[in-house]
Design a protein around this nucleic acid. Sequence first.
DNA 1: CTGAAAGCGCTTACAG
DNA 2: CTGAAAGCGCTTACAG
Lengths: 348, 348
Amino acid sequence: MKQIRIKDIAIKAGVSIGTVDRVLHNRGEVAADTKEKVLTIAREMHYQPNIVAQALTAKKQYNLAALLPRGGDDNVYWMLHPQGIELAIKELQPFQVDVRFFFFELHNESDFLEKTREIIDYNPEGVIFAPILKKESLKFCSELDQLNIPYIFIDTNIDNTNCLTFIGEDAYQGGRVAASLIDYGLEVSRDILIVNIAKDLENTQHLNARNQGFMSFFLDAGKNKGMKITVEIPSAESKDVESRMDLILNTNPNIGAILVSSAKTHVIAKYIEKRKLKDLILIGYEITRKNTDYLKKGIIHFLIGQRPMEQSGKAVKKMFDFLTVKQVPAKRDYQPVEIINVENVDLF
Amino acid sequence: MKQIRIKDIAIKAGVSIGTVDRVLHNRGEVAADTKEKVLTIAREMHYQPNIVAQALTAKKQYNLAALLPRGGDDNVYWMLHPQGIELAIKELQPFQVDVRFFFFELHNESDFLEKTREIIDYNPEGVIFAPILKKESLKFCSELDQLNIPYIFIDTNIDNTNCLTFIGEDAYQGGRVAASLIDYGLEVSRDILIVNIAKDLENTQHLNARNQGFMSFFLDAGKNKGMKITVEIPSAESKDVESRMDLILNTNPNIGAILVSSAKTHVIAKYIEKRKLKDLILIGYEITRKNTDYLKKGIIHFLIGQRPMEQSGKAVKKMFDFLTVKQVPAKRDYQPVEIINVENVDLF
DNA sequence: CTGAAAGCGCTTACAG
DNA sequence: CTGAAAGCGCTTACAG
C-alpha cells in the first residue's frame, strides 16, 4: 500500500492541502463541515503523516520532560537513565526531539512537587517519569491528564492511571530469580538470610515484590529446606550494619546465603569482607560500580540487574512514536531480568 | 554547530549545488579541479548529508544482502537473525532500506558459493553475512573487496579481513560463564563432563573457544577439583547419544555436571529425561524452543544465550550508518552473554 | 474561512 | 562540463 499524502486527502475532499493541514493539526480557522469531511477522509484512507517530511520542515520540535531521581556516584542506577534518554534522542537525531531533565531528591516530596510544577510550566508534549512517590505522582498524573499531556512510567508502576505505558522490571520475578540462584548453589539444609536495608525502603514496592517473589520460589519450586530469615537493617551506616549483622549471624550460624533485596548489596559485601567470612553466598540487585567491584572480588556471587539505559531509551522511542504517529504501546513492558556474575559482567 | 548544506559548499566553491552533488556522489561529468575544490571545501566544513532530506527525495534505495544459514524449527537461532534484520529495517522505515535474504544450507559449501554468486549478481550496497565456512567466506570477502561492497560479519568472525565489523558472541567468555555456573552449583569433588556434539562441529570456532574458555576458568578461578572429561558424540541421533552417554556415565559415576558446548543441549536433556537421571547439572547454549522446554522441566539448569535478533539488528543499523554518513564502527562488537534459567527465561 | 506559494535539503532529469 | 528547475511531503506565513 502506498503512502497517503495530505494532497490525496485534499483532492478527495475538494479542498487545498493547507486546509487539510489545518484540520489535521487542529489549528482552527476551518468550517465545521469541512473539518468533518477532511477528518473522515483521512481516517478512511488511514492517513499517516510522513515523519521524514515533517522532520525536514523541522519546525516541529518535540519537547519532552523527564522527571527522575537525581543520580550520583552513590546512585549510578539513576545516572544511567538520563544517559539512556540522551542516547535515544541522539538516535532520533534528524527529528527535533529535545528532553529537559528535572531531577528530584529521592524521598523529598516537596522537591518532587516543585519539579512537577516546573514541568507543568514548561508545558512539554510528553513526560517520562519515575512515579516513586505514589501520592505525589498520582496528583501529577491527574494534572497531566487534564492538560492532555501523555506520560510514561519508568522503573516503578502505579496501577489505574492513564499512563501510556510502564517500562521496568518485574520485581516479583526478580525475587524468584534470586531465589533460584541461591537454591541452585546452596546446600539443601542451610538457612537463608534476606536483608532489607531501610534506607531503600522508600523503594517499598520493589522490595516487597522481590521479597514475595523470593519466598514464592521456595514454596513452589525450591529444593532448599532451611529457614528463611528476613531482617531489616535500619541504615546503611557501617556500624548499624555491623552490629545488626554480627548479632544475626551469631544467632544463626547455619546461614549459608544472603540476599540483599536492593542495590545496597555492596554494604553487606563490605561487611563480609571486613569480617573475612567465607563460604557465604551473597546475591543482590543492580549492576552498579560498587556492586560489581565486590562481584569481581568474589564476595558477591550474582547480581540481578536491569538495563536502565535501554529502559529509558525505550521510553523515549515509545513516546516519540506516540506523538508522531499515535502508536499506542502495550500498557506494560517488563524488561529482561539479567543474571550477572563475574564472568559476564564485563560484556554488559 | 549548524548543519552544513550542499548549498553552503556550492556558495563557497562558486559552483551550483548540482555540481556539488555530482562531486559528492561521484557521478562524474565534473572538471577535475572543480571536483578537487568542492571536495576540499566539503571536508573543511565537515559536511554531513542531511539524511532526512535524502530520505525524502526517496529515490535512494539501499539494497542490502544478508547471507545466512537457513533457519528452521530445528534451528531457531538462525530463524531469529532474519527477524532481527527485518525489525531493524522497519525501524529505519522512512529511509528506503531493503534486504534480500540469501539462505544457504549449513555445511554445504557449493550451496554457499552459489549464493555468494547470486549476491554478486544482485550487486547490493552492503552485505551482512555469517562467515561460517571459512575458506569460501574468504573468497567471498575478496570478491566484495574488489567490488568495493562493504560487509559485516555476524555470529562468527574471521580475522584479517576488511569486514566493517564483527558482531557476535565472545565464545571464549561464554565458555567461562558456563564453567562459573557449574563451579558455583557443583560439589567440589564431583567430575564434569563436556560434550561436543559432532553435528555441530562445523561450528568449530565457537566450540573450540567455548571449550577453551571453560577450561581456563578452572585453571585460574574455579574451586572445583574434580576431573574434566571431554567427549565427542558423533551424531545427535538418539541411539548414538544413548550408547555413548551410557558408556561414559557408567565408567565415570562421579560425574555431577554436564556442559554441552552447543545448541544441541536438548539432545542430552532428552537422554537424561529418558534415563531418569537425578542430580545431574546440565548447562548448555542458546535459547531455543527445544532447550527452553527442558529448562522448564528442570532438566537443563542454565542456558547461555545471545540475543540473535539484537545482533543482526545492530548489523543493519551499522551498515546503514556506514552507507549514509560513512560512520565506521569499531572492528568488534561482542554481545552480552546472557545467563538464562527457568525464572528469567520468559522475560526474554 | 480558504488557497496558493515558498521553503526545508537533497536528487534528478533537462537544457545548454 | 555546468546550472537552473522541479519535486519529495509537509508546514508556515501571506493574501484574499
